[in-house]
Amino acid sequence: MSELAILYEHPAWFEPLFAALDRRGIGYDKLRPDGHFDPADGRFPTPVVLNRIAMSSFLRSGEHPIFHAMALLDHWRRAGARIINGPDVLAIDSSKARQLSLIASLGLAIPATRVVHRADDVAAAAETIGFPLVVKANIGGSGAGIMRFDSLGELRAVVEAGDLPVSVDGVLLVQDYVPARGGAITRVETLDRAFLYAIDVAGGGAFDLCPADACVAGSGISMAAVQPAPELVDAAERIARAVNLDVGGIEVMIDDRDGVARFYDINALSNFVAQPLNVLGWDPHERLIDYLVERIEETR
Rank of each mutant, 00 (worst) to 15 (best):
A229F: 07
D208V: 14
N138S: 13
F37R: 11
D163H: 12
A235D: 07
G218N: 02
A119W: 00
R181G: 00
R193F: 05
H75T: 06
R262V: 10
R148L: 13
G141P: 07
F195I: 07
S105A: 12
G170S: 08
F67T: 07
N51F: 07
I289Y: 04
A12R: 14
T186S: 14
I296K: 03
L269D: 14
D41K: 11
P39I: 12
S56R: 10
A261E: 02
R77T: 07
E251S: 05
A20P: 05
E231V: 04
L173Q: 02
N278R: 14
I239N: 01
A180W: 10
E160C: 00
V122L: 09
L209G: 01
A54F: 06
A79T: 09
A224H: 12
A97N: 07
I129S: 09
D150F: 05
M147F: 09
A125K: 06
L90V: 06
I199L: 14
A104P: 00
F149N: 08
S151I: 10
D265A: 09
V247I: 13
G27W: 03
A119Y: 05
G204R: 10
D213L: 03
S95T: 00
V135C: 11
T299N: 02
V135E: 06
S151F: 06
A202R: 14
I110H: 05
D22R: 13
I6Y: 10
A5S: 15
G248V: 09
G248H: 03
G259A: 13
P111N: 11
G218D: 02
P16D: 04
D93R: 08
D169S: 09
N244W: 01
V260E: 09
I250E: 03
I129Q: 04
I139G: 09
G35M: 09
A125V: 07
A81F: 01
N267G: 02
R262E: 10
V293H: 03
V188S: 04
K96N: 04
P284Y: 00
E294W: 01
S61N: 15
Y291R: 11
L288D: 08
L90N: 09
A214W: 10
P33K: 08
L196P: 08
S57C: 02
L108M: 05
A81P: 01
S94C: 15
A217K: 14
P11W: 05
A224S: 14
A69Q: 06
V135Q: 13
V188I: 15
P39C: 07
G27S: 14
P179A: 11
M70A: 15
A109F: 03
A229R: 14
V166N: 11
L173C: 01
R300F: 06
M147P: 00
F272N: 02
V252M: 13
A242E: 15
E297M: 13
A261L: 07
A126W: 01
S57T: 01
D150A: 06
G86P: 02
E297C: 00
N85S: 01
T190P: 09
P284M: 08
Y8W: 11
E3I: 03
D22K: 14
V233T: 15
R241Q: 13
V216K: 12
A212F: 00
Q227V: 13
D200S: 14
P47H: 05
L59E: 13
R52Y: 04
